[in-house]
Protein backbone atom coordinates (compact mmCIF):
# COMPACT_ATOMS: atom_id res chain seq x y z
CA UNK A 1 0.00 0.00 0.00
CA UNK A 2 1.48 3.34 -0.98
CA UNK A 3 1.98 5.92 1.74
CA UNK A 4 -0.51 8.24 0.03
CA UNK A 5 -3.17 5.62 -0.09
CA UNK A 6 -2.44 4.67 3.49
CA UNK A 7 -2.71 8.26 4.58
CA UNK A 8 -5.92 8.71 2.66
CA UNK A 9 -7.47 5.66 4.26
CA UNK A 10 -6.20 6.79 7.62
CA UNK A 11 -7.80 10.18 7.26
CA UNK A 12 -11.03 8.61 6.12
CA UNK A 13 -11.11 6.26 9.05
CA UNK A 14 -10.29 9.05 11.42
CA UNK A 15 -13.01 11.27 10.06
CA UNK A 16 -15.57 8.48 10.32
CA UNK A 17 -14.49 7.58 13.82
CA UNK A 18 -14.46 11.21 14.83
CA UNK A 19 -17.96 11.81 13.51
CA UNK A 20 -19.29 8.72 15.24
CA UNK A 21 -17.59 9.32 18.56
CA UNK A 22 -17.56 13.06 18.95
CA UNK A 23 -20.91 13.42 20.74
CA UNK A 24 -20.26 10.49 23.04
CA UNK A 25 -16.80 11.78 23.81
CA UNK A 26 -18.14 15.13 24.86
CA UNK A 27 -20.56 13.47 27.28
CA UNK A 28 -17.82 11.39 28.87
CA UNK A 29 -15.69 14.44 29.22
CA UNK A 30 -18.41 16.32 31.07
CA UNK A 31 -19.10 13.36 33.31
CA UNK A 32 -15.43 13.31 34.31
CA UNK A 33 -15.17 16.86 35.55
CA UNK A 34 -14.40 16.92 39.25
CA UNK A 35 -15.61 19.60 41.57
CA UNK A 36 -12.83 21.75 43.00
CA UNK A 37 -13.45 20.18 46.42
CA UNK A 38 -12.87 16.66 45.15
CA UNK A 39 -9.34 15.29 45.29
CA UNK A 40 -7.67 13.53 42.37
CA UNK A 41 -8.37 9.86 42.78
CA UNK A 42 -6.55 6.64 41.99
CA UNK A 43 -9.79 5.36 40.47
CA UNK A 44 -8.77 7.31 37.41
CA UNK A 45 -5.61 7.13 35.38
CA UNK A 46 -5.26 9.79 32.76
CA UNK A 47 -3.55 8.88 29.54
CA UNK A 48 -3.04 9.70 25.90
CA UNK A 49 -3.25 7.57 22.82
CA UNK A 50 -1.38 8.94 19.81
CA UNK A 51 -1.88 7.33 16.41
CA UNK A 52 1.22 8.44 14.58
CA UNK A 53 -0.04 7.16 11.25
CA UNK A 54 -2.40 10.14 11.43
CA UNK A 55 0.26 12.44 12.74
CA UNK A 56 0.44 15.02 10.01
CA UNK A 57 3.78 16.73 9.55
CA UNK A 58 2.67 19.69 11.62
CA UNK A 59 3.50 21.22 14.98
CA UNK A 60 0.01 22.19 16.03
CA UNK A 61 0.27 20.28 19.31
CA UNK A 62 3.63 21.84 20.15
CA UNK A 63 2.43 25.38 19.49
CA UNK A 64 -0.80 24.84 21.41
CA UNK A 65 1.03 23.39 24.40
CA UNK A 66 3.55 26.16 24.66
CA UNK A 67 0.85 28.79 24.16
CA UNK A 68 -1.41 27.26 26.81
CA UNK A 69 1.37 26.89 29.34
CA UNK A 70 3.19 30.12 28.62
CA UNK A 71 6.37 28.29 27.66
CA UNK A 72 8.34 30.91 25.78
CA UNK A 73 11.94 30.73 24.66
CA UNK A 74 14.77 33.20 24.67
CA UNK A 75 16.07 32.16 21.27
CA UNK A 76 18.53 29.78 22.91
CA UNK A 77 17.43 26.32 21.81
CA UNK A 78 19.90 24.50 24.02
CA UNK A 79 18.61 25.99 27.24
CA UNK A 80 15.01 26.92 26.34
CA UNK A 81 12.32 24.68 27.76
CA UNK A 82 10.33 22.31 25.57
CA UNK A 83 7.37 20.50 27.09
CA UNK A 84 6.46 18.65 23.93
CA UNK A 85 8.49 18.22 20.78
CA UNK A 86 8.10 16.84 17.33
CA UNK A 87 10.46 13.91 16.83
CA UNK A 88 11.30 12.62 13.36
CA UNK A 89 12.26 8.99 12.93
CA UNK A 90 13.91 7.35 10.00
CA UNK A 91 14.50 3.61 9.91
CA UNK A 92 18.22 2.96 9.60
CA UNK A 93 17.72 0.03 7.23
CA UNK A 94 14.61 0.77 5.23
CA UNK A 95 14.56 4.55 5.38
CA UNK A 96 10.91 4.53 6.46
CA UNK A 97 10.17 7.96 7.96
CA UNK A 98 7.72 8.86 10.71
CA UNK A 99 6.89 11.82 12.91
CA UNK A 100 5.54 11.79 16.43
CA UNK A 101 5.01 14.14 19.34
CA UNK A 102 7.03 13.25 22.43
CA UNK A 103 6.42 14.57 25.92
CA UNK A 104 6.34 13.33 29.51
CA UNK A 105 4.96 9.81 29.28
CA UNK A 106 3.34 9.96 32.75
CA UNK A 107 4.73 6.60 33.83
CA UNK A 108 3.20 4.48 36.55
CA UNK A 109 6.74 3.92 37.85
CA UNK A 110 8.43 7.19 36.93
CA UNK A 111 12.25 7.19 37.28
CA UNK A 112 12.16 10.96 37.84
CA UNK A 113 10.02 10.45 40.94
CA UNK A 114 12.28 7.70 42.25
CA UNK A 115 15.43 9.80 42.08
CA UNK A 116 14.09 13.15 43.32
CA UNK A 117 15.78 13.81 46.69
CA UNK A 118 13.07 16.08 48.10
CA UNK A 119 9.98 14.41 46.69
CA UNK A 120 9.26 17.45 44.51
CA UNK A 121 8.88 15.17 41.53
CA UNK A 122 5.73 13.21 42.25
CA UNK A 123 2.92 11.24 40.72
CA UNK A 124 -0.58 12.41 41.49
CA UNK A 125 -3.17 9.80 42.46
CA UNK A 126 -4.71 9.98 39.00
CA UNK A 127 -1.39 9.19 37.31
CA UNK A 128 -0.24 12.67 36.30
CA UNK A 129 3.49 13.16 36.96
CA UNK A 130 4.27 16.67 38.17
CA UNK A 131 7.06 18.78 39.67
CA UNK A 132 6.19 20.55 42.90
CA UNK A 133 8.19 23.71 42.26
CA UNK A 134 7.77 24.71 45.89
CA UNK A 135 10.18 21.96 46.92
CA UNK A 136 12.30 21.56 43.78
CA UNK A 137 15.89 22.54 44.54
CA UNK A 138 17.05 22.41 40.93
CA UNK A 139 19.45 19.47 41.22
CA UNK A 140 18.42 18.11 37.76
CA UNK A 141 18.75 14.49 38.83
CA UNK A 142 15.29 13.86 37.35
CA UNK A 143 16.50 15.15 34.00
CA UNK A 144 19.31 12.60 34.19
CA UNK A 145 16.85 9.85 35.05
CA UNK A 146 14.06 10.48 32.52
CA UNK A 147 14.24 7.98 29.66
CA UNK A 148 12.36 10.32 27.33
CA UNK A 149 14.35 13.53 27.67
CA UNK A 150 11.02 15.05 28.61
CA UNK A 151 12.20 17.44 31.28
CA UNK A 152 13.58 20.94 30.98
CA UNK A 153 15.52 22.96 33.48
CA UNK A 154 14.54 26.62 33.54
CA UNK A 155 17.83 28.27 32.74
CA UNK A 156 16.83 31.92 33.12
CA UNK A 157 14.28 34.22 34.71
CA UNK A 158 10.71 33.88 33.49
CA UNK A 159 8.08 36.58 33.24
CA UNK A 160 4.57 36.72 31.86
CA UNK A 161 3.53 33.38 33.31
CA UNK A 162 0.00 32.10 32.89
CA UNK A 163 -2.03 32.22 36.08
CA UNK A 164 -2.57 28.45 36.04
CA UNK A 165 0.98 27.55 35.10
CA UNK A 166 3.59 28.95 37.47
CA UNK A 167 7.15 28.67 36.16
CA UNK A 168 10.40 30.10 37.47
CA UNK A 169 14.15 30.06 37.13
CA UNK A 170 16.19 27.32 38.72
CA UNK A 171 13.59 24.56 38.75
CA UNK A 172 12.72 21.65 36.52
CA UNK A 173 9.47 21.32 34.61
CA UNK A 174 7.77 19.14 32.05
CA UNK A 175 4.41 18.36 30.50
CA UNK A 176 1.70 18.45 33.17
CA UNK A 177 -0.87 16.82 30.92
CA UNK A 178 -2.46 20.28 31.27
CA UNK A 179 -3.46 19.34 34.79
CA UNK A 180 -5.25 22.68 35.27
CA UNK A 181 -7.49 21.90 32.29
CA UNK A 182 -7.97 18.27 33.30
CA UNK A 183 -9.11 19.42 36.74
CA UNK A 184 -11.73 21.56 35.02
CA UNK A 185 -12.87 18.57 33.00
CA UNK A 186 -11.19 19.66 29.78
CA UNK A 187 -8.71 17.86 27.57
CA UNK A 188 -5.04 18.88 27.31
CA UNK A 189 -4.28 21.72 24.90
CA UNK A 190 -2.27 19.50 22.53
CA UNK A 191 -5.17 17.08 22.13
CA UNK A 192 -7.68 19.85 21.58
CA UNK A 193 -5.46 21.50 18.97
CA UNK A 194 -4.65 18.23 17.19
CA UNK A 195 -8.32 17.39 16.89
CA UNK A 196 -9.17 20.88 15.71
CA UNK A 197 -6.29 21.81 13.39
CA UNK A 198 -4.06 18.77 13.17
CA UNK A 199 -4.29 15.16 12.09
CA UNK A 200 -6.74 14.16 14.82
CA UNK A 201 -4.16 11.73 16.02
CA UNK A 202 -4.51 12.22 19.79
CA UNK A 203 -7.07 10.87 22.21
CA UNK A 204 -7.13 11.82 25.87
CA UNK A 205 -9.00 9.92 28.54
CA UNK A 206 -9.19 7.72 31.58
CA UNK A 207 -7.36 4.44 31.08
CA UNK A 208 -9.52 2.90 33.80
CA UNK A 209 -12.90 3.94 32.41
CA UNK A 210 -14.53 1.23 30.26
CA UNK A 211 -16.75 3.82 28.60
CA UNK A 212 -13.80 5.97 27.48
CA UNK A 213 -12.69 5.90 23.87
CA UNK A 214 -9.05 5.48 24.90
CA UNK A 215 -9.96 2.45 26.99
CA UNK A 216 -11.87 0.81 24.15
CA UNK A 217 -9.21 1.52 21.56
CA UNK A 218 -6.38 0.25 23.72
CA UNK A 219 -8.43 -2.87 24.32
CA UNK A 220 -9.22 -3.57 20.68
CA UNK A 221 -6.26 -2.15 18.74
CA UNK A 222 -2.50 -2.67 18.94
CA UNK A 223 -0.45 0.00 20.71
CA UNK A 224 3.07 0.43 22.05
CA UNK A 225 4.96 2.25 24.76
CA UNK A 226 8.23 4.02 24.10
CA UNK A 227 10.98 2.10 25.93
CA UNK A 228 8.55 -0.62 26.89
CA UNK A 229 11.64 -2.62 27.96
CA UNK A 230 11.90 -0.44 31.06
CA UNK A 231 8.46 -1.64 32.21
CA UNK A 232 7.42 1.81 33.37
CA UNK A 233 3.79 1.40 32.26
CA UNK A 234 3.50 4.74 30.56
CA UNK A 235 0.27 6.71 30.45
CA UNK A 236 1.05 7.84 26.91
CA UNK A 237 0.66 5.13 24.29
CA UNK A 238 1.46 5.17 20.59
CA UNK A 239 -0.06 3.44 17.59
CA UNK A 240 1.77 2.84 14.33
CA UNK A 241 5.20 3.08 15.87
Amino acid sequence: MSPDRRRFLGWGAAAAAGAALAPAFRLIELAQARSPEEAASALQRWGLLIDITKCADCDVCVTACHEENGVTGHGRPETDAQWIRQVRLRDKRTGYAQTLPLMCQHCEHPPCVDVCPTGASFRRADGIVLVDKHTCIGCRYCVMACPYGARSFIHEAVSGQKADVPRGKGMVESCTLCVHRVDRGETPACVEACNRDGGKAMVFGDLNDPSAEIYRRLRSEPSTQVRADLALNTGVRYQGL
Binding site: P77, Q82, R85, Q86, V87, R88, L89, R90, D91, K92, R93, L102, P147, Y148, G149, V226, R227, L241
Partner: peptide, 10 residues
Amino acid sequence: MFPDKEVTSS
Protein backbone atom coordinates in the same frame (compact mmCIF):
# COMPACT_ATOMS: atom_id res chain seq x y z
CA MET B 1 14.53 5.78 22.70
CA PHE B 2 13.80 4.32 19.30
CA PRO B 3 16.06 1.38 18.44
CA ASP B 4 17.10 1.10 14.78
CA LYS B 5 15.86 4.60 14.01
CA GLU B 6 17.67 7.78 13.21
CA VAL B 7 16.14 10.37 15.49
CA THR B 8 16.01 14.13 14.98
CA SER B 9 14.16 16.90 16.79
CA SER B 10 14.36 20.51 17.87
